[in-house]
Amino acid sequence: MAPHPEQPSVTVHHDVYPGIDLDSRLKDAAKGKVVYITGASRGIGEATVLAYAKAGASGLFITARSADALTSVAESASKLAPSALVEPYAVDVTDEKAVGESVKKCLEKFGRIDIVIANAGYLEKWVKIGDIDPDEWWKSMTVSIRGTFNVIHHTIKHLVATKGYAILLSSVGAQNRRPGASGYQTAKHALNRFAEFIDVEYGSEGVKVFAIHPGGILTVLAANEPSLIPLLNDKVEIASNTMVRLTSGSEDWLSGRYVSCNWDLDELAKRRQEIEEGDLLKNRLDVGGLANPL
């Protein structure tokens, strides 16, 4: 029996399409929301700050390790949307106490948190398990898993209070098994499962969560692995705009699942019954015909 495919049959986009257009479909989709974003100093994180500012967010608490870069992003967001309050705050997501302090600062500034974007990550150079520097391997795991845990640990009760949203930056790599990529791809696979746990534990209290593949985007981080560069041809806005849509309320039914920002969300919605009845787009062991008795 052939293995089941790991991509749904929907249109794949590489740039903004009508369903994620901030000037039409998603105009004011984040109006009045307070958004806490990690890894916000460049790349996907920076684009996400700008997207939520354009979509009407009233408060943006943006974090990364580089204070100077965050200041520049905050200035760009303020120019784009003068009514949005933007608060930059330097923090390393792997420092649990520092993350906790950042969340306190966000609450002091804005009073609540409606949306959390756990974007900070790390990509090691891809080397086989026996040859890679163990510290490099574990850094991928630590930033992606521990860093995301720290952020959710300190924000989840506030998301319960607002019946808010959490987005975890996963990757299509979570589904792949590429030689040399065991650190990065294992970490992203674990993030998908972590999103499922957030849904299991807090979904009944109103929290919505998605683990997303942002698309194949050429960022400084992605360029750390040269073999990936020819594959990275997507516009960064496909990630940022999709996140705005996922937290707009129209895709709440996808909570607890893995979603690729390349997938056409309007087409995916037509498969809603199939997805819900089969509890699809989640990590699980495929036993195929072994499910049938001998």
Rank of each mutant, 00 (worst) to 15 (best):
H154C: 09
V143L: 08
A98P: 01
G130S: 09
N119T: 07
I62W: 02
K125Q: 12
L60M: 00
R112C: 06
V116P: 07
C106E: 00
S140D: 11
L159V: 03
R112M: 08
I117W: 07
A74M: 01
K163C: 07
S78H: 09
K105V: 05
V160K: 01
G111C: 10
V73S: 11
V172M: 13
H158M: 03
A166F: 05
V151G: 10
G164S: 12
V116L: 15
A77K: 08
L169F: 13
T94Y: 06
D135Y: 05
H154V: 06
L168G: 07
V99L: 07
A90E: 04
H154K: 10
S66G: 04
P134V: 09
L85R: 14
Q175R: 13
R178N: 10
K125F: 09
A90D: 01
H153G: 06
E96N: 15
E75T: 13
R112G: 03
V116A: 15
D95V: 01
E75R: 11
I129F: 15
K125L: 09
N150Q: 10
Y122P: 02
L70I: 11
A166Q: 05
V127G: 05
V151H: 07
P179L: 09
V127C: 08
T155I: 07
S83Q: 12
E136N: 08
A67Q: 12
A84R: 04
T148M: 10
R146V: 03
G130I: 04
S171P: 05
S171C: 03
F149D: 07
D133S: 05
V143G: 13
A74C: 02
V86M: 00
E124S: 14
I145W: 00
T63G: 14
I145H: 00
A120W: 00
K139Y: 05
V160M: 02
K105R: 15
K109H: 06
D131S: 11
A118E: 01
N119M: 06
E75C: 02
P179H: 09
C106K: 00
S76W: 02
A84G: 06
H153A: 07
K125E: 13
I132V: 12
A67E: 13
S76L: 14
S171A: 14
K79S: 15
A74V: 01
R146P: 01
Y89M: 03
W126N: 10
P88M: 02
V86L: 02
P134D: 08
R65W: 07
A77Q: 01
A77G: 07
P179F: 09
P88T: 02
P82R: 10
N119K: 03
S140F: 00
I62A: 12
V103N: 12
V99Y: 02
L70P: 02
K163M: 05
I167F: 10
P134Q: 07
I132N: 11
N176Y: 12
D114Y: 05
I167W: 11
T148Y: 04
P82V: 11
P82G: 09
Q175G: 13
G121F: 04
N119A: 06
P179I: 09
V103F: 06
D92C: 00
D131K: 14
T63A: 15
S140A: 04
